[in-house]
Design a protein around this nucleic acid. Structure first.
Lengths: 154, 154
DNA sequence: CTATGGCTTCAGTGTCGACCGAAGTGTCGG
DNA sequence: CCGACACTTCGGTCGACACTGAAGCCATAG
């Protein structure tokens, strides 16, 4: 008795959501992302997501708002009293990754200001200096990598 | 009336801890890291940290255990009933950053298995493919950057 | 063996955030 | 103006986790 593709996709969505949950994204938000990445057709209404993912309308609403705001999901409204359609905006995924890398590099501002507080005491600054050097290196390398990205046209 | 260096360092430690708190490191753990990066002398006992950071002995113990386990802090024991000394292990900071980058890249395993589930339906796989391509690129570029790191001898 | 001191463990407390579902808001057709 | 529908907002609940402080554990000195 083999397992259907849709069943395996459900399991995949769940793993997908679990991964992002560890990074602080609400479970339901991660499920929406995973689902919208693979569903057919590509667009869904909030009500459909609520039923498909077995989440309350409130949770769907809150998370969709968050994802639309982050740019990862696009809302398409239609004339009449029709429900809005939501679809993944996979082109913006790169922005999310950039934000993560920026957050990593931003520690450098902290280490720099710490180094300034230490000026005049090189001995004491040694430990911080090791860390500061590391972040300084990251801050010069990572943006350079980003430039080399295929179609970094935006 | 100017502010003393130690006072400003306290404020810096607090900002330092606040930054890592956003990344999921307990506030007290972040304070320990910041403090051990700049304190003079460089080594402290658990009791001293408890007093200096105004945290309970239990919290200090739990967080030191976590930090020692992560490799960021080194425990030095001494003969006699003397308290153990803790100091920052700034050389291991690079490991922490590597772990972060690895976590970022590891999403690729998810997108890959998702792509496999989609094989035979290129149309439907298009959205996931965009994301998968991005992580595949990251997975090839980031380790290469890491190799170029000054004294990546480890 | 006993007392001392230092760290660890653990039960209890408080806070925070995700989630639910019902009530509310807004919009459109009739 | 009213009814229907879709989404949003909000109070309430639940679980997770950081933190505390006291009790427990272990090693050492005497």
């Amino acid at each position: 008795m083999s397992v259907g593709r849709e069943t395996r996709l459900s399991a995949w969505i769940e793993r997908f959501a679990a991964h992002f949950a560890e990074e602080g994204i609400p479970l339901i938000g991660g499920r929406i992302l995973g689902y919208l990445l693979v569903c057919q057709p590509t667009e869904r209404t909030a009500a459909e997501l609520s039923q498909e993912l077995e989440a309350s309308s409130g949770s769907i609403s809150t998370n969709l708002k968050f994802l639309v705001n982050a740019g990862l999901v696009t809302k398409r409204t239609r004339r009449g009293r029709q429900a809005a359609q939501y679809r993944i905006n996979e082109k913006r995924w790169v922005d999310m990754i950039q934000r993560k890398l920026d957050a990593l590099v931003s520690v450098r501002e902290l280490t720099e200001s710490g180094m300034r507080l230490m000026s005049g005491d090189p001995e004491r600054a040694m430990r911080l200096r090791t860390v500061d050097d590391l972040y300084t290196w990251l801050a010069t390398e990572l943006p350079a990598v980003w430039e080399r990205r295929p179609s970094s046209s935006r």
